[in-house]
Nucleic acid binder design. Structure first.
Length: 924
RNA sequence: GGGCCGUUAGCUCAAUUGGCCAGAGCGCCUCCUUUACACGGAGGAUGUUACGGGUUCGAUUCCUGUACGGCCCACCA
C-alpha cells in the first residue's frame, strides 16, 4: 500500500497526476451557495496573442498562493480564469500570417472571413496559455473560464456602452489620433514606442506675400508642408511680429496662409523663430488650431493623407497618390529646384512607431468615439484617497492618482474588425417612422441628434432590433472598441453582470487584484471607474503590485523583445513547485527583480535561480522520507507537553511562530517573507536541529513514540503551511502520510482536523509560543555551535567523538543535563561532566557559549590554543571598550530607552566575565 | 524636460516604527559520501550599506545635494 519513495524528488513523475486528481475531485470549483467568507480573485487575463512568460508566472503563482491559503482557511474561495482578445495585437498577428502564407490582405478575405480566422487562431493559442497555467498548478475554477470577447462579456460591454451613451459620457468627434498606416487603425499612446531615427532638418523659405522677403521654417517632415494652414511666430519677437496678420505664399501650392501669433507653440529663442503649422498632422499644431478656434485668427484644418499613408487630393495634383516617404523626397527635390531649400542638416529625432506593426505612426485626423473621463475619474480617485482601495506596496497608489488626475478623455474606437463592435447606428436623414419607434423604447434604445444626423445606441445585441435599424437605412459604425474597454469590466463581467447572478452577489467586490505595475493606469484605474459606475461598488479591496521580472541584462521580459522565458522550460528542468517557490521568494517589495537566464543546448532556457526551489523541494522530500521511515502506524498516547523533551517543545513553538509569521506576511502580500519564514523553519529548525536531535530519541524505547508523534505532527503542519507555495509535492507527501499514519496523534498545539486532500485541509493554527523553551534550546545551539567551531579549528576528524565538560551557572546545570544527549549527538562528543564549579582541566581547549565554560579534553597543541585565546581576548577587549564608551556617554544614558541601556549593561557584564576567565588562564 | 522608484557581499535579494557584531541563497575556501537528503552536512572568508553634507546619544533606515540605473508622463519646430 505505502509504496516506497525514491531518494530524489522527481517532479515530472507526479505533477500531471496530482493536477488531474484535483480536477477529478473538482477541488478548484466553488459555488456561490457554498459556505464560507467570499474570497474572489479575477485573473489578469493574458493576451491571447502569446504564450506566457515568467512575468505571468510570478503573477499567477502569487494569485494561486492566495487562493489556496484562503481555501484552506475555509473561505468560499474562487479564482476566475480568462483570456483577453487583445484586439489590435491579435488582428495584427493573424493579418501578418495571412499575408505571409496566403498573400492576402484583410480586405480580400472580408470582415467575416478575417474574424473567423482569428477565432480559429484564438482556439489554438488560448489552449496553449491554459495548458501553461495548468502546468504551473493554477487552481482556477475552470468552469468559470471567460474570454473578453465571449457572449457574457459582450453583454457587459453593450450594457456599459449604452449606459455611458445615455448619460452623455460618450462623444464622437474629429480628433488627431495616432494612426497606424499599415494596420489602418488608430492606436493608443501606450501602443507606441519611440525609436531614434537619423533624418534631416530641412530649412525652407516661405515667401511673404506682397514683399520680396521670406520666412524660414525648419522641419523634419517636409511633406507635411502641403497641409500647412499657417505659420506662427512669437508675439514679442521683434524680427517677425510686424508680419502678424499678413500672409505667406505656401511653396508648391497656390495657397496663401496667415502669419499668426502663438506664444505657446513658438519659442523665439529656438531656431528661426518661425514655425509652420500643420494642424491635421501634428499634435502641437492641432493644439494651435484648437486655441485659435472661434477667434479672429482662426486657422484652417487640412488633411493631406489617406488612411493608407498615401497623400490625397488635398495635397495637390502633383503629389496626390504618392506614398508619404516618396512625397518627402520629391518635395525636397522640387523645393531645391525652386531655390527655396536653404539647407539640409543631419538630425536625429525620436519617431513614434506602432508597437504592433513596427511602422512609424502618423498623427491623423479622424472620427473617433471618446469616453468623457472627468465624471468617472473623480469617484475612482476618491476611493483610493480614502483608502477604500489599498495598494501594496502603498507607493504605487501615487501613479494611479497622478494618471487619473489628468482626466484625459479616453478614445475608445479602433478601426479594427477583431473586437466588440461599437453598438451605434447612424442615419443622416432618419425617417419619422423610425424616430417615433426610437422614442418608444428608452430602456433599450438611446440616441442623440446633431447636424450630421442621428446616432442610435442599442443596449442589447438583439437581431430583430438591429435588423429593423438596418431596414430603415441606419448603418452600424464599422469600428470596434479598445480592448481595454472590455477588460475594464472584467471583475464584474466575469461574475455575470449585468445579470444579478448569485456569483456577482457573493463574490463582488473581489478581494485583491494581483498585477505588475505597468498596467496600474491602463487597467486598474479603468476597472475601478467602471466598477463604481456600473455597480456603485469598488471592484476589489486591495491591489497587490509585484515586481517586474527582468532578464540578466536588466530588460523587462516581454514577447516583443523576444527575451521571455517559457515557464514550461523551467518546469522541465526544475519542476513546477521549484518555479513557484522561487517566484514567491523573489516577490519582494522592490520594483524589479533580475533573473539571469542561460540558454541550454536544447534551445530552452533555464536559470540557476530556480535551484533554490528545487533544492528546497528535494530537502522536503527527503525529510518526509525520514519521518515516514520512523513512524509507527498508530500514534502513542497523548502526553502532556510538560513531559516532552526540550527539543519537542522547542520545535512546536518554532512551528507556531512560523505560522504566525506567515500569516503576518500574507496579510500584507509579502510573499517573500512567507517563503523565507517557511524556508528557515523547515530547513534550519526542523532539519538541521530537530530531525538530528530526534535520531537518538527515536532509538530510545522510552521516547521513541512521543518523538515520532511530534515528527508526524510537525510534518503535517509543515505540509499545510507550504502547500499554497508548493502544492504538488506537498499533496503527494500528504497522501503518503495519510497512508502510513491516517491519524497523527497530534500534540495539542498542532491539532487540525484530518483531511483526505491537502488542498482542502485546514490552514495550520498559530498556537502558543514557548519563549523559555526557545531560549533554553538556543543555549544548546550556542554550545553545540562553539564546540563544532573548535573542532573545525583544531581539524578534528568529524567522526571522532571528543570528550568535554561544561561548567555553567547553577541555574542551568539541570536543564543542560537534560539536553546532554542532544549536545553529544549534534557536536559529536561525550559530555563527561556538567557542573557549576568545575576547575579548568589542564591542557583543555576552552570555549565560552551561553554563559558556560566548555572544556574540550584530550586535545594537545597548547600553542595553538594560546593563540586562539589571545585572539578571542582581543575581540573581547574591543567589545568591552566600545560598550564602556557607550555607557560612559551621558547623552546616551539619558536619551536612549532604558531597555537598551540595560541590554548594553548586560552585554558588558557578560563580556567582562568571559574576558576575566580567559585572561586568567591565558595570563601566564 | 516633469514625476516616481531604486543603488546593501563577486551575483540575486533581506533587514518590523532609527537601536544586538547589517543577514540569506548562489558562488568561493577547508573538511565530511555519518543508514532522509552531495539537489546533502560541519565550519570559514568576503561589506567605508553608490558618493558628499545634515539631523540624532545612535543612520542601511530621516532630510538634502551629486552620480548611476529603471519606470511612467510629455517631447520641442
Amino acid at each position: 500500500m505505502s509504496e516506497s519513495l525514491p531518494a530524489a524528488y522527481e517532479p515530472g513523475a507526479i505533477e500531471a497526476h496530482i493536477y488531474q486528481m484535483w480536477l477529478d475531485r473538482n477541488a478548484f470549483h466553488a459555488e456561490a451557495t457554498d459556505a464560507g467568507e467570499p474570497y474572489c480573485i479575477v485573473i489578469p487575463p493574458p493576451n491571447v496573442t502569446g504564450a506566457l512568460h515568467l512575468g505571468h508566472a510570478i503573477d499567477n503563482t502569487l494569485q494561486d498562493i492566495l487562493i489556496r491559503v484562503h481555501r484552506m482557511r475555509g473561505c468560499n474561495a474562487v479564482w476566475i480564469p480568462g483570456i483577453d482578445h487583445a484586439g489590435i495585437a491579435t488582428q495584427a498577428v493573424v493579418e501578418k500570417q495571412l499575408r505571409e502564407q496566403e498573400n492576402l490582405s484583410r480586405h480580400e478575405v472580408g470582415r467575416e472571413g478575417l474574424v473567423q480566422r482569428i477565432w480559429k487562431w484564438k482556439e489554438q493559442y488560448g489552449e496553449r496559455i491554459l495548458h501553461q497555467l495548468k502546468r504551473m498548478g493554477a487552481s482556477c475554477d475552470w468552469a468559470r473560464l471567460r474570454f473578453t470577447l465571449d457572449e457574457q462579456c459582450a453583454r457587459a460591454v453593450r450594457a456599459t456602452f449604452f449606459k455611458l451613451f445615455k448619460d452623455g459620457l460618450i462623444s464622437r468627434g474629429k480628433r488627431l489620433v495616432n494612426w497606424d498606416v499599415f494596420l489602418q487603425t488608430s492606436i493608443s499612446d501606450d501602443e507606441i514606442y519611440h525609436e531614434n531615427v537619423k533624418t534631416s532638418l530641412w530649412h525652407i523659405r516661405y515667401p511673404i506675400d506682397g514683399t520680396s522677403e521670406f520666412m524660414t521654417v525648419a522641419t523634419t517632415r517636409p511633406e507635411t508642408m502641403l497641409g500647412d494652414t499657417a505659420v506662427a511666430v512669437h508675439s514679442e519677437d521683434a524680427r517677425w511680429n510686424r508680419y502678424i496678420g499678413q500672409q505667406v505664399r505656401l511653396p508648391l501650392t497656390d495657397r496663401l496662409i496667415p502669419i499668426i501669433a502663438d506664444d505657446i507653440l513658438v519659442d523665439p529663442k529656438f531656431g528661426t523663430g518661425v514655425v509652420k503649422v500643420t494642424p491635421a498632422h501634428d499634435f502641437n499644431d492641432y493644439a494651435v488650431y484648437q486655441r485659435h478656434l472661434g477667434k479672429a485668427d482662426e486657422i484652417a484644418l487640412l488633411n493631406i493623407l489617406r488612411p493608407d499613408g498615401h497623400l490625397n487630393e488635398a495635397a495637390g495634383a502633383v503629389y496626390a497618390g504618392q506614398r508619404r516617404d516618396h512625397a518627402r523626397k520629391q518635395i525636397v527635390i522640387d523645393l531645391a529646384a525652386l531655390g527655396l531649400l536653404i539647407k539640409e542638416e543631419p538630425h536625429e529625432a525620436e519617431v513614434g512607431h506602432s508597437d504592433r506593426s513596427k511602422t512609424p505612426v502618423e498623427p491623423y485626423l479622424s472620427d473617433q468615439w471618446f469616453v468623457r473621463m472627468a465624471p468617472l475619474a473623480e469617484p475612482a480617485l476618491d476611493v483610493v484617497r480614502r483608502e477604500s482601495i489599498r495598494f501594496f506596496p502603498e507607493r504605487h497608489a501615487q501613479q494611479y492618482l497622478a494618471w487619473l488626475g489628468e482626466k484625459r478623455d479616453w478614445p475608445v474606437s479602433r478601426q479594427l474588425w477583431w473586437g466588440h463592435r461599437i453598438p451605434v447606428w447612424h442615419h443622416a436623414a432618419p425617417s419619422t417612422e423610425s424616430l417615433e419607434w426610437l422614442q418608444l423604447n428608452p430602456e433599450f434604445i438611446a440616441f442623440n441628434q446633431n447636424e450630421s444626423g442621428i446616432f442610435v445606441c442599442a443596449r442589447d445585441s438583439d437581431p430583430l432590433i438591429e435588423q429593423r435599424l438596418v431596414d430603415w437605412g441606419y448603418l452600424q459604425d464599422p469600428d470596434v472598441l479598445d480592448t481595454w474597454f472590455s477588460s475594464a469590466l472584467w471583475p464584474h463581467s466575469t461574475l455575470g453582470w449585468p445579470e444579478q447572478t448569485g456569483a456577482l452577489q457573493k463574490w463582488y467586490p473581489t478581494r485583491v487584484l494581483v498585477t505588475g505595475r505597468d498596467i496600474i493606469t491602463l487597467w486598474v484605474a479603468r476597472m475601478v471607474m467602471t466598477g463604481l459606475y456600473n455597480l456603485g461598488q469598488i471592484p476589489f479591496d486591495h491591489v497587490c503590485v509585484h515586481p517586474t521580472i527582468l532578464d540578466g541584462k536588466g530588460e523587462r521580459m516581454s514577447k516583443s523583445k523576444g527575451n521571455g522565458v517559457d515557464p514550461l522550460d523551467i518546469i522541465e528542468t526544475h519542476g513546477a513547485d521549484a518555479l513557484r517557490f522561487t517566484m514567491s521568494h523573489m516577490a519582494t517589495e522592490t520594483q524589479d527583480v533580475r533573473l539571469p537566464v542561460k540558454k541550454l543546448p536544447s534551445g530552452k532556457n533555464s536559470s540557476v535561480r530556480f535551484d533554490l526551489g528545487r533544492n528546497f523541494c528535494n530537502k522536503l522530500w527527503n525529510a518526509a522520507r525520514f519521518v515516514f521511515a520512523n513512524l509507527q502506524s498508530a500514534p502513542g498516547e497523548l502526553s502532556e507537553p510538560g513531559q516532552w523533551a526540550t527539543a519537542d517543545r522547542w520545535i512546536v513553538s518554532r512551528f507556531n511562530r512560523t505560522v504566525a509569521d506567515a500569516n503576518t506576511a500574507l496579510a500584507t502580500y509579502r510573499f517573500d517573507a512567507y517563503a523565507r519564514a517557511c524556508y528557515d523553519f523547515f530547513w534550519r529548525d526542523l532539519c538541521d536541529w530537530y530531525v538530528e536531535a530526534s535520531k537518538p530519541a527515536l532509538k530510545d524505547p522510552a521516547r521513541a513514540t512521543q518523538t515520532a508523534d511530534v515528527l508526524a505532527a510537525v510534518l503535517d503542519g509543515t505540509l499545510r503551511l507550504l502547500h499554497p507555495i508548493i502544492p504538488f509535492i506537498t499533496e503527494r507527501l500528504w497522501s503518503h502520510l495519510n497512508q502510513i499514519r491516517p491519524t497523527r496523534g497530534l500534540p495539542i498545539d498542532l491539532a487540525c482536523p484530518p483531511s483526505e486532500l491537502l488542498i482542502k485541509a485546514n490552514w495550520p493554527i498559530a498556537g502558543p509560543l514557548d519563549e523559555s523553551t526557545e531560549q533554553r534550546f538556543s543555549q544548546v545551539q550556542e554550545i553545540v555551535g562553539i564546540i563544532r567551531n573548535a573542532r573545525n579549528d583544531y581539524k578534528i576528524d568529524p567522526r571522532k567523538a571528543i570528550t568535554l565538560s561544561i561548567s555553567g551557572p547553577a541555574a542551568m546545570v539541570d536543564s543542560l543535563a537534560a539536553d546532554r544527549q542532544t549536545i553529544e549527538l549534534l557536536a559529536t562528543c561525550a559530555v563527561s561532566d556538567i557542573s557549576s564549579d568545575l576547575v579548568p582541566p589542564p591542557n583543555a581547549i576552552r570555549a565560552t557559549a551561553a554563559g558556560c565554560e566548555i572544556y574540550l579534553m584530550e586535545l594537545i597543541d597548547p600553542a595553538a590554543e594560546k593563540q586562539r585565546l589571545a585572539k578571542r581576548c582581543e575581540e573581547l577587549r574591543k567589545t568591552i571598550h566600545s560598550l564602556r564608551g557607550r555607557l560612559g556617554n551621558e547623552s546616551y544614558m539619558s536619551k536612549a530607552p532604558p531597555q537598551l541601556v540595560q541590554q548594553t549593561h548586560d552585554q558588558l557584564t557578560e563580556a567582562e566575565a568571559e574576558f576575566q576567565k580567559l585572561d586568567g588562564s591565558n595570563g601566564g
